[in-house]
Design a protein around this nucleic acid. Structure first.
Lengths: 194, 194
DNA sequence: CGATTCTTTGAAAACAGTCAATCTGTGTGG
DNA sequence: CCACACAGATTGACTGTTTTCAAAGAATCG
């Protein structure tokens, strides 16, 4: 049950996890199952749980005054879900995160993280690696949103994350990319014609 | 000479720096002076130096095939400058970073960082805090670029980082916000009229 | 001063959004 | 098994914001 998580963490470290570290992971990470549409986090709450997606898919979003969702993140297997800032500082999160399909997460509570994990060497290395990658991905998204046309943003996503198109309907992808579903549909119609 | 840096780091930590840690900072951080227009990093290079801006201002940007700069980051006093991913992995950076005015940075080489700092407790805590903040800021910028109008993006920046308007000309701010200098100029003309 | 660099203004064009209607597929209950 | 509801995708006409291109005006620096 911990296989995917341990394999993933090993793949991100410069040296393999020790037996003690694996024991600590098994002690602190717990399987959390979410049904479709169930929330991992709601706006205004403190993020108590963060973890590794073993199976399933989630979306992170805000809701504006008209009730329209703005998708800020999509997470599938082998991604980490949660609001890191809220989780670590204990401040209310501005985001919703919910399961887009039945989902299983290997999750740690903020309390266990502080008590058992935060001083671990392998955790420091892991966080450093993941946060570098996340910052780079976010900066690419800033660049794309600022600078690229709707067509180029779509082409980028199709190239870099083709699996999203199997997992999420077009109107979700459109919102993630910062365009309307109509625009996304038209771009696809055009590129097919070529 | 190390006062600003040490005060800043202390302000970010849960407990004050010890004498040994301060000694280590003084050993590894060195003052780097940049003249106006001098590069801290150029596209294709590996980022060898990263550090804390004591005085001055820098811009981070890419250059497209037509030579047009796209500003991705602006840094002034009390910010950190450098490409973290390139710095830590030793991979070529896609960015330029140059001094927008005469600038002083307290910088560490990637080598010294690995040899002396990366295993330090206070560095782990510092990186964790800063990277959480950076991720949050970047996600806000993704949201702004995707969702807000040019007028709202400008209002946001005026509210949250008014100091930028004292330090950078309008065409640089416009590029940072993902609009043309003409649009920025027109928005200001309109809001003045009210 | 003369020369960049920065900012403003105008007119036309392009891109993407909005609103509204229709079409498609899927699954559910009678 | 059919009818219906529902979520998702497409299409058309129209609107509005922002860009592009061009020119000129203002400010700053050597």
């Amino acid at each position: 049950m911990y296989d995917e998580l341990i394999a993933y963490i090993n793949s991100q470290l410069s040296s393999e996890l020790t037996e003690e570290e694996i024991a600590l992971i098994k002690k602190t990470f717990k399987l959390k199952k979410l049904r479709k549409h169930q929330f991992l986090l709601q706006e205004g709450e403190v993020c108590q749980l963060a973890g590794f997606v073993v199976k399933g898919a989630l979306k992170q979003y805000t809701v504006d005054e008209n009730g329209k969702e703005d998708i800020l993140g999509l997470y599938i297997e082998n991604w980490w879900a949660g609001d890191r800032e809220s989780y670590s500082k204990g401040t209310p999160s501005p985001f919703y995160i919910d399961a887009f399909e039945a989902t299983e997460i290997m999750a740690v509570s903020a309390e266990d993280f502080t008590n058992y994990l935060s001083d671990q060497r392998f955790i420091s290395e892991l966080i450093r690696t993941l946060s570098e990658r996340q910052s780079m991905q976010l900066l690419k998204r800033v660049y794309a949103a600022k600078t690229l046309s709707a067509e180029d943003r779509l082409a980028d996503l199709e190239k870099n994350y083709p699996e999203f198109f199997q997992r999420f309907p077009q109107h979700i992808i459109a919102s993630y990319l910062g365009m309307t579903k109509e625009t996304l549909s038209r771009i696809r119609a055009n590129s097919h014609r070529k």
